[in-house]
Amino acid sequence: MSRKIERLINLTIALLATKRYLTKNEIFTSVDGYEGSPETKERMFERDKDDLRNLGIEIEVGGFDPAFDDEAGYRIKSESYQLNIGDISGSEVALLSLAAEAWRGAALNEAAQSALIKLKSIGVESDLDAIPNISPQLRTPNADFEAISLSIAQRGVLTFTYVGKDLELQKRRVAPYAIATRKGFWYLAGLDLEKNLVRTFRLDRIDGQIQAHKSSPPYEVPDDFDILNYLENLGESETATLDVRKGKAHLLRIQALTHLDKGEWDQLTLSYQDQSRLIESILWHGDDVLVIAPQELRNGVISALKELAHNHG
């Protein structure tokens, strides 16, 4: 096994060091480790090329020379092999270290750590004194996280089963744009290819495995798309006026736009987009919250209460 590893490394070195394209024959005679019949060497070489590509190393094919045998040559361009992010300061390395540490114990921890090793190999030491002592953490409960992020980068397509509002199982085909975490949940935003509309999906509502597919041509992602903005501004919003008992209903109080002291009660206004969600929240607070306006919201709460009284009577 270590023979194979040596061969892969020697091949990488030879293809990186060469100024011109190397033909297969040149590779077989000069790079250590290619042995056996011509067919065996050929098979070895094909596998090695695939292996290097899987490691993210691009092998360039070219150098056809009509004067000779029309034989393809190979090389690795150092521009595509090497990390090229320009000058980097010690405080920047420290920020990147914090970014990598945020993945401890979460889905992309291994990728984050190997990225950090590469950045530290530039030779600039991390200046930890330059940054405050914080350690924010990312949490990723979903195992398909890596498939989703790769698919975004490659502009591919994802298919999955989504649990809808009424527990119906929906088959979705989505060109993913971005992922975000907000209030403890992960969201995926993308173009729903059946509806041809941008949609967001909560990752914990995806049922079963997510399948990633290649797409050709790759999907375009609008370059001004901001997923957090998108999540905050879904649809038209309306304003509700609620009476709230003093010292109660803190979940609603923190959303209040205006606040009026009425003695035993306070009158709040807040904006909402999803009426049924607001009704749930009002009902959760029992007799500590009364709806003043709009009438439609008031009616919604009243009919829900009648159902509750009827079902439990």
Binding site: Q82, N84, A99, A100, A111, L119, P136, L138, S149, A153
Partner: peptide
């Protein structure tokens, strides 16, 4: 002797981490 380029997965990990930081 030069560090290798970041893979897509590595870039995604750093980008999400940086936004959080």
């Amino acid at each position: 002797s030069q560090p290798r380029n970041l893979t897509i997965e590595e870039s995604i990990a750093l980008l999400l981490g940086l936004d959080l930081v």
